[in-house]
Design a protein around this nucleic acid. Structure first.
Lengths: 143, 143
DNA sequence: CAGAGTCTGTTTGTATACGAACAATAATCC
DNA sequence: GGATTATTGTTCGTATACAAACAGACTCTG
């Protein structure tokens, strides 16, 4: 069987979950960049969620898209600079910034939804129909 | 004011592979940072692979750890600054930089291997023994 | 009501990531 | 053997990520 020397640390990088997760993510991001060159994966996520919600506070949008306050600020700034979302102060809470997708933002989002589905399909393409379901079910448990 | 237009293709962010991959990766990185505060996940990967290989060219180490030339440069610079790896010019090829782990680097690596295994275990902890095998098998195909 | 604590958005600093362009060097080909 | 091509490492610019510290605005509690 396999010999194990207890004096030497036995560790291989390649099969570790973390390494595989990082590479799978890299592959997905490359597919995304080819599929929707107009936006980054993160920007599309924020825009999509904002269109889904209709409107949201900046930090709330960050929570909904798994970005911390500092990250969502940068993403929101770039989307606003491109005219895809608009910012308005909340009359009920002076701290809050309410974000809303602009008509242009909604249009871009709608136009890219088919591409987004294609990206998901291409990312999962190496798996059989059945394996995709299994994979997504298990992956969801690791979030 | 939110209304649903049935002409638009439906899309939800939450179940998309890309979003789940990103969040699973975030969770893993948080586990890693708690488990090995001395090094980032990327730095540990580079150090581990270099210890595995004994020595490597900078770009070759990048390829072995899935980092492009610009990324591995930054990682290698930080590891060198901390005295964990050493750099030497290749006599046979003036372009190449040969990287080698220092004694300190090997010692730190060896001391953290158990923690690294624990990180992998904790990341996969939500899955049953059988599901872990399945998940890793499928994840590997998406790399 | 006053003070403690919480939440909002912001800023700074560090660390991946990657595209693109670059100079120096090697390898290849005709 | 000289020109073309490829590779190596570097730099620049942009975009996530996140910790930490901050000020201002709200909330809760005593």
């Amino acid at each position: 069987m396999t010999q194990h020397d207890d004096n030497l640390p036995s560790y291989r990088l390649d099969p570790q979950v973390g390494f595989l997760l990082r590479r799978a993510n890299q592959r997905h991001l490359a597919i995304f960049a080819r599929g929707i060159p107009e936006l980054t994966s993160t920007q599309f996520a924020a825009l999509a969620k904002l269109c889904e919600l209709g409107q949201a506070t900046q930090n709330a949008l960050g929570r909904a898209t798994a970005m911390d306050a500092a990250t969502i600020k940068g993403v929101a700034d770039r989307l606003r600079k491109r005219g895809l979302i608009a910012t308005a102060p909340d009359p009920d809470d002076q701290r809050r910034l309410t974000l809303t997708p602009t008509a242009e933002g909604r249009a871009l989002y709608a136009s890219q939804v088919p591409a987004a589905h294609a990206i998901t399909a291409e990312t999962l393409e190496p798996l059989s129909e059945e394996d995709r379901t299994t994979f997504l079910r298990l992956l969801e448990k690791l979030t």
